[in-house]
Design a protein around this nucleic acid. Structure first.
Ligand SMILES: [Mn+2]
Ligand SMILES: [Mn+2]
Ligand SMILES: [Zn+2]
Ligand SMILES: [Zn+2]
Lengths: 154, 154
DNA sequence: TATAATAATGAAAACCATTTTCATTTAAAG
DNA sequence: CTTTAAATGAAAATGGTTTTCATTATTATA
């Protein structure tokens, strides 16, 4: 529309952070998946594109992108952090999660999302005033058992 | 009121799990704190009461209590799981969290909690129908910067 | 353009919360 | 009492993540 460069360009500028090949690859990998990738999974996909990228850089890039609020980090209870792009044009958009505590299946949902956001927005405003917080984000997750896992005994 | 034994006795019976000294100590430690303790912190407090209890047992007990839905496990982003009693009589009751991403300060809040629960209850019912999930739990967390951390530069 | 200062990177090592192994103890069942 | 299964602790292993450090790439400056 107005500025040049991709949607995240401006964030990089604001944070005085350089646009490097590795960082672009990480963003692109996240763009091209609908899943919730772990650092290692991102590394493998990035490595397939640019084999010189190391796992350390993936971790460093993800932390940077999280601080710039380009990605959101999640803990779904399977022992490793998982990542999703945040507010990327053409992306999933803001959504919440439904997680099976046994098989760790993750479902993105947007049902009633407007009501939820509306309700949370009121709370957010109240809390930021009451506790003097600058609130940037929220997470809503439901935990339970999926159909398959409900059947199993153990 | 009617049954004998503490509030969690029935859960132990249902799950065919033995009531042991170590398990009682863990529950008591969680009862006596308003904080969100990590496994190691629980271990230290338990160890002060019963020095024979090992850290391994703390981990095993916490996983068991989580499965019995006596405790709830949280990831507040500081690299270790933290635990809170769930629905214990005389406890905090159901609440949500406000977390400082920098200093990891955690604030329990119950403001607008009824509206939130009400809104989430509708979503939960819809999702459990749509995806055939047995939903047992939910987490709502706001993330941001507390007053002190907002001032700092880095 | 040459030079200096700074940021970014990869490989290897370190870190550390959590899990696994295994021998031992404890408690329920018959 | 005997048998069987559950619970436990110490030590070792695991594995995701972070740190270290030498090297390279980028930007600022002269
Ligand atoms: Mn998602
Ligand atoms: Mn709490
Ligand atoms: Zn499942
Ligand atoms: Zn803070």
């Amino acid at each position: 529309m107005h500025g040049r460069g991709p949607w995240w360009q401006e964030r990089f500028n604001q944070h005085c952070v350089r646009v490097t090949a590795a960082r672009e690859v990480v963003i692109n990998v996240l763009h091209e998946t609908a899943e919730h990738l772990s650092a290692t999974e991102i590394y493998m996909k990035a490595h397939a594109i640019s084999p010189e990228i190391g796992l350390t850089t993936i971790y460093r890039t993800l932390e940077l992108l999280e601080q710039m609020r380009i990605v959101q980090k999640f803990d779904f209870g399977d022992g490793q952090a998982r990542f999703e792009l945040l507010n990327n044009p053409g992306g999933k958009g803001h959504h919440h999660h439904l997680i099976c505590v046994k098989c760790k299946k993750i479902i993105d949902y947007k049902d009633f999302i407007n009501e939820e956001i509306n309700c949370l927005g009121k709370t957010q405003e109240f809390l930021s005033e009451k506790y003097n917080f600058q609130i940037n984000d929220h997470i809503v997750s439901f935990y339970g058992l999926c159909e398959e896992c409900r059947g199993k005994k153990s």
